[in-house]
Design a protein around this nucleic acid. Structure first.
Lengths: 248, 248
DNA sequence: GAATTACGTCAATGGTGTTGACATAAGATT
DNA sequence: AATCTTATGTCAACACCATTGACGTAATTC
């Protein structure tokens, strides 16, 4: 499961004005002194390695020491590229956004376009559930996030919303997508045996609840396992978009 | 970085038959040897103190050392009552869930009732964001959640939905509430300086983006800070409930 | 070829959760 | 009342963690 090509690669080529953590222009070549073990560091290499590390070992494996070991460099070398681990986390989150946007182009139908954007973000998050669990709530202030905001707001403006409403409803939309994606991701990130135990408990525990104490649950009992097993994501997406379409 | 393993909460029990980490019934009196500073420890005392500590000093204050200092005991004394800090967090989460539903009674208006349920869950989570950020990740399928499911499904049934739809839309509703609450909570659980930096970014970073590259962002620029700063929770709640009311 | 400096390395600081040994007082047993 | 058990508070220690500052050294520049 390698994601060799980064989602933002195409975008990063065409601009010479990207600025790194110390406001130095990155367009110029950096001194790439090889580490003791021979690897050559860069922001991309570090982010890629971090994503793979998290995907393989879990979110708690994202420490400068372990990352340094995985990179084959001294842990503190990472601080030459990222101010702090939080800064690194934002870069990882932006990487994730970039990956979900690869190949996405909004169409003329703004509802359908937003719907696809939502589904894409969710798919991207589920592809890296453990990364998503820790990155979903952050504002990355990075290029790929700018792109996503730009596209979303443009769609709502094209729908006819006022600038104020376009921002407001973009926020409502994107937070809903991110929140559900994060919830699903954190669930997917659980250990398999825990997850299946949770699934079974919906069938088992809820089916054994006394009907006298829980009459409503008793009434819908037959549908619980079926409806609770899947994901409500698409339902929610449609519910929100449906209301938005009526409010325009 | 936080360790987020342990899916087993089988040891969390309801009041009567609560069992501690060495499977001893708590109902009987324990040896309550006073600490050096005179305070007498118990699970409840520790949980109460931890909740107050989080509320007063912020999210990062919940460390065994600080909690020990607040309790007036050696930090490691806490391990006599809780296997780990994660175990302690689950105990706090249990306390929190109970708190959320206290005094809630569904009324005749099912939309208004669901709305209040949603707001209550969110308020409860935001009151203790760090706990919520962890608790919402793993859905706790226990007594208080049964109560919430029963009330929610009953409301949707009373609205006229079929049993299958009542379950389906309850899931969509409650997941939306939980997901947004968790998102807000994990954001609120960030370090204060990180959070305010995220907030400022909407004014600062996004306002300086070139209008040629980001025309839509340029158009809505004046509204960004205002609309992105607050929470979209109530908007989303209303959007979802609005669609539900139309589908009944 | 010399000068500059970016960046990889190392050592050190002060935080964290957690464990095991130990002492002692609370409660049980007599 | 005396004795025994053992629960539990304390202490020291361990293994981590993020982050900082000093220091060479090699890569780029001039």
């Amino acid at each position: 499961m390698e994601h060799v090509d980064r989602g933002d690669q195409a975008d990063r080529m065409d601009r010479g004005d990207r600025v790194d953590r110390v406001n130095r222009v990155v367009g110029e070549r950096r001194r790439r002194r090889p580490t003791k073990s021979g690897t050559v560091l860069s922001e991309d290499v570090i982010v890629d390695c971090a994503v793979r590390l998290i995907g393989h070992q879990g979110a708690e494996a994202l420490t400068v020491r372990k990352l340094g070991a995985a990179l084959g460099c001294d842990p503190t070398a990472i601080y030459r590229y990222f101010r702090s681990t939080d800064d690194l986390l934002l870069a990882i989150a932006d990487f994730l956004i970039g990956e979900t946007l690869v190949g996405y182009r909004p169409g003329p139908d703004w509802v359908a376009s937003l719907r696809e954007l939502g589904l894409r973000v969710r798919d991207g998050y589920l592809r890296h559930p453990r990364v998503a669990a820790i990155a979903a709530a952050r504002v990355t202030r990075r290029h790929n996030e700018f792109r996503a905001v730009e596209m979303g707001v443009a769609l709502l403006l094209s729908a006819g919303f006022s600038p104020a409403d376009a921002v407001r409803y973009y926020r409502a939309f994107i937070d809903t997508v991110l929140a559900h994606a994060a919830l699903e991701a954190s669930y997917a990130a659980l250990a398999p045996e825990v997850r299946s135990a949770d699934d079974r408990s919906w069938e088992e525990t809820y089916n054994t609840l006394p009907k006298t104490d829980y009459p409503a649950i008793g009434t819908v009992r037959r549908h619980l396992a079926e409806e609770m097993a899947g994901s409500p994501f698409e339902d929610v997406l449609d519910l929100v978009l449906e209301s938005l379409a009526r409010r325009v």
